[in-house]
Design a protein around this nucleic acid. Structure first.
Lengths: 237, 237
DNA sequence: CGTAAAATTGATATTTCTCAATGAGAGTGG
DNA sequence: CCACTCTCATTGAGAAATATCAATTTTACG
């Protein structure tokens, strides 16, 4: 939310040894293309709570998340907030039709992104259909996630919402880190509430309830999944 | 839900005078391409209530809606249903990454689709990046709609949900028909409830409430927007 | 017409929210 | 190093919104 103090790394970064090389949009590029692509992106750091872009801002850049977690959200005029997703390394942000962002994005903890100016990136895509195809794949994947989330928001109880969230979040982290029954939760309870369409109090009570039932243990900065099967049963599919 | 009795139109249909020519995926094709494309699609009719495809079915075709309205939905194992969207003429259905549909689609009233077998359609796209770009545009548009809908499901009251639905639905029809304060609602109250994350009783009561307040009039097969400004105020953004 | 399905309405139950108080952890300055 | 303060999280009590259950009423259809 503070004005963002941007650090632009001068040089010394190569796509070829980028952490998200294999999973991000750039996975569609061959080594030669990658060297050209390298000149388009700049690594930019954001610290905890900084806003990377805001809803309704004119889109000047696209972003590839390299490190950290971001919250993506929309606000109603009266301040109610709905988090529409959390972005993790490999996620590509900024695509839209209107020329304006249709949600806001903040860093949760320290974040590094690879930032591309819109125009040169657009030109680069122009004659690289396989990059376009990759972007399309990511969009379709997100659309699937969005639909799953609609089911959660519209048809699940508070218990089911939290259980499904914990499992889904663990699942996403699995693609990035070694599997573990310890699930780090870098976002606040309020973030979780705004993601699940609940209040912070309900989220807190539901955590406590899951813990009392022996399904999880609340630890510092996350939870420990004591009884994954039980949490899965609670998530009801 | 009944097994679908499919009628395949033999011939006599040309993309060039298709109703959705200007808005659908095919708007990206030039006349020469269009003649080739013509051989890929078949017009197929579905009658009210028929299922066009089901979640988890292996994707064998893509669909371009030509006429009518479809409900797109996901079911939880215990039968709870969330409608993730209504498809209208010009909408393109069936894209996914897994090779299986990730939602089900039923006809609401009579529906005509242009059906494309997956493999030949895939091959046709292969060397037509502008078609891919068009598909990507449609995906991004849907993603935006999905995010808006998450806000509705997670953060709006029943009154706001219904008001926002009526305005949004009117808006979508506006692109297809002449603007009118009479808003046809071909879907059932249950469909509306499952779209808004409410029960049918709450939807019914909220309609009645809007009518008592003079904001709308409930008419056969739809509503009349008596006081659009008031409904907009209720929708709260 | 008569029957079935859909929609409405009412009474009550339940879930989740709201408001309020308390507790715990992180960082700061004495 | 310790009080202080700030933010975040938890807990409790009561209120409100929406769901559930049940009964009509209306509409659709054979």
């Amino acid at each position: 939310m503070k004005p963002s103090v941007i650090t632009i790394e001068p040089n010394g970064h190569f796509c070829s040894d980028c952490a998200v090389r294999a999973s991000a949009v750039c996975s569609s590029l061959d080594p030669a293309e990658l060297r050209e692509f390298e000149h388009l992106g700049r690594r930019v750091h954001f610290s905890s709570g900084e806003t990377v872009f805001s809803e309704e801002d004119i889109t000047t850049s696209f972003y590839n998340v390299l490190e950290g977690v971001m919250r993506l959200y929309k606000l109603l005029p009266d301040g109610r907030r709905q988090i529409v997703g959390f972005a993790l390394p490999g996620d590509f942000l900024g695509m839209n039709l209107s020329g304006r962002h249709n949600f806001s994005a903040d860093a949760i903890g320290a974040v590094t992104v690879c930032q591309f100016a819109k125009a040169p990136f657009g030109r680069f895509i122009e004659d690289r259909p396989q990059l376009l195809r990759r972007i399309n794949e990511l969009a379709i994947r997100e659309l699937g996630q969005a639909r799953d989330h609609m089911v959660l928001l519209g048809r699940r109880s508070a218990d089911e919402k939290l259980a499904a969230f914990l499992l889904g979040w663990r699942e996403r982290l699995l693609a990035l880190k070694a599997p573990s029954d310890t699930v780090p939760l870098p976002m606040s309870r309020q973030d979780i509430a705004d993601y699940l369409g609940l209040t912070i109090e309900t989220v807190s009570r539901t955590f406590t309830k899951l813990e009392r039932h022996g399904a999880i243990e609340i630890i510092h900065g996350g939870i420990s999944l004591l009884d994954p099967a039980r949490v899965e049963a609670l998530a009801a599919a």
